[in-house]
Simulated scan of single mutants.
Amino acid sequence: MKQIISTDDAPAAIGAYSQATTDGSLILTSGQLPLTREGELLDDASIEDQTKQCLDNIQAILQAEGASMSSVLKTTVFLDNINTFEEFNQSYSDYFDENPPARSAIEVGEVPKGAALEIEAIAVAEQ
């Protein structure tokens, strides 16, 4: 049965979606923008700092469900400029230095709110 995951430690949803959902075995996060939990968009920050904020948001959502970044099976990354991939990847690898999850990283025409990237994750719910 689907359950909604919500935490004040990550930015609130800005549309008709939940921060994440779970069926008790998997956690699926919505795409996380580089928004602080107060809702400030870090669109003028470096790609490294925007990546860090997106992943901090995912980490907070997972922790609300008792999971961690080591539980992540797959991420999908939407970049507004594939030429920033190397810088993004340096920041990303700080969160997944051992046994990283599967990942797709693609360039898209635009990311919501003018951000440089958006990241979503699928994780195993801690049993």
Rank of each mutant, 00 (worst) to 15 (best):
K2G: 01
E38G: 14
Y95P: 01
T7H: 10
S104R: 03
A102N: 12
I61C: 03
V124F: 05
Q90D: 10
I82M: 14
K113S: 10
G114R: 06
E48Y: 00
L33Y: 04
T36L: 10
L35G: 02
D80P: 00
Q3T: 12
D43Y: 12
G39I: 05
G66P: 03
T7F: 11
I47P: 00
Q19S: 13
S71Y: 09
Q3W: 08
Q19R: 15
I61H: 03
S30L: 08
D9A: 15
E118M: 12
G66K: 13
Q3M: 13
I106M: 13
A60V: 06
K52S: 10
E40A: 14
Q127T: 08
A102C: 07
E65I: 09
N83K: 12
L117D: 01
T51G: 01
R103N: 11
P100G: 04
T51D: 05
C54D: 03
N81V: 12
S30F: 06
F96E: 04
S71H: 15
A116G: 05
A45L: 08
P11T: 11
R37F: 12
D94H: 14
N57E: 10
T29F: 03
I5K: 09
T22F: 06
M1L: 09
L117S: 05
S46C: 05
M1C: 05
P11H: 15
Q127H: 07
A20H: 02
T76V: 06
K52G: 02
I61W: 03
R37L: 13
N57L: 08
D49R: 07
Q53G: 04
I27M: 05
A12P: 00
I119G: 01
A16K: 06
E38A: 15
P100A: 05
N57V: 08
D56P: 00
E98N: 12
L62P: 01
G31Q: 02
L42E: 05
D44A: 13
I119P: 00
L33C: 03
L79Q: 10
K113D: 09
F85L: 08
F88P: 00
S70V: 11
G114T: 04
E126S: 09
D43H: 12
G114K: 09
I27V: 10
E118W: 01
G15K: 06
L33R: 01
A123T: 06
M1K: 11
T51Q: 08
E65C: 13
I5W: 04
N89V: 04
L41N: 14
L73Q: 10
E87S: 14
F85W: 09
D94C: 09
Y92W: 11
